[in-house]
Amino acid sequence: MKMPLPEGEFDAYLFDCDGTIADSMPVHHRAWLRALEPWGATFDEELFYAWGGRPPATVIAELNARQGLAMPVDEVNEQREKYFQELLPEVTAVPEVLEHIQDAYGKVPFAVVSGSARDSVTASLTALGLLDRFDVLVCAGDYVNGKPDPECFLAAAELLDVAPERCVVFEDTDFGVRAATAAGMAVVRVPPPWQRHPSDVS
């Protein structure tokens, strides 16, 4: 079923990537668990989804602090990304979001605004055959303050030369929704996998 847009006219569509365009969050969680296992770190599914939208380096640092560990941030992050790339063929697009992309493509400019690294975002969009749909990519490393700070969304609006209040954001996480709202943008909340695929949950 197509997700309704908020009321109003919009001059740009901004999309989170993981869990919004790409139905990749379960795959990301598996990659995280594999990368963390050698260090004895835990990262349960509830916390993983609650922290959705945070840059991976921030997640690793926080897990270190909470669990009294000293995992090397760069090394763990590289392993996590390696495992994700191996699992990438399993990722599909979120149908309800893909429908909006197909309907509006060529009518308004699109941007991806993600807490993931550019290589990861590019790989996901390429695997889905969607990379050429997006005029702008704003990824980890392109801004200082991650979601829920609005900086990344405001940067995307500026690159598209569209006023923030004329942008609509598609997001699946609390951090992302808070960031988009703080940027003065309308938001379409993308349900998590277990709400979109209730029949898959036993």
Rank of each mutant, 00 (worst) to 15 (best):
T122A: 15
S124G: 07
R196N: 07
A127N: 15
E7Q: 14
V169K: 08
L128T: 12
A155P: 01
L33P: 02
G184Q: 00
Y143Q: 05
P38N: 04
T42F: 00
V187D: 05
P193M: 11
V190D: 07
A156Q: 03
V112W: 00
P72G: 08
D142R: 05
L14W: 09
S202D: 08
E96Y: 05
D23E: 12
G68M: 02
L137A: 02
A123N: 09
I60M: 04
Q67R: 06
L87M: 15
D18Y: 00
L88G: 03
A117L: 11
Q85G: 09
D161R: 13
D11R: 13
P148F: 03
K107C: 04
Q102H: 14
R80K: 15
E151S: 02
Y105F: 14
R80G: 06
F170S: 12
L63V: 06
Q85T: 09
A61L: 12
A140F: 09
P38V: 09
R34K: 15
A123H: 07
A65W: 00
W32T: 00
K82Y: 05
A156F: 07
A12F: 07
Q85L: 15
P192L: 12
G8S: 01
R30Q: 12
L137S: 03
E171D: 11
V97I: 02
A41E: 09
P6L: 08
L98Q: 06
C167W: 10
I60E: 06
G141A: 10
A93P: 11
L130A: 03
L69D: 03
L69M: 03
F84C: 01
L159Q: 11
F153Q: 08
T181C: 03
T122C: 08
A31H: 07
G141M: 11
C17I: 01
A123V: 02
Y105K: 13
P191D: 08
P72N: 07
E7N: 14
V201C: 03
D135G: 14
Y49R: 15
P148T: 00
C152Y: 04
E78Q: 10
Q79L: 15
A93F: 12
Q67Y: 08
R34V: 11
A155C: 08
V144K: 10
E75M: 00
G115V: 07
L125N: 14
A186T: 05
Y143M: 06
P109L: 00
R178L: 15
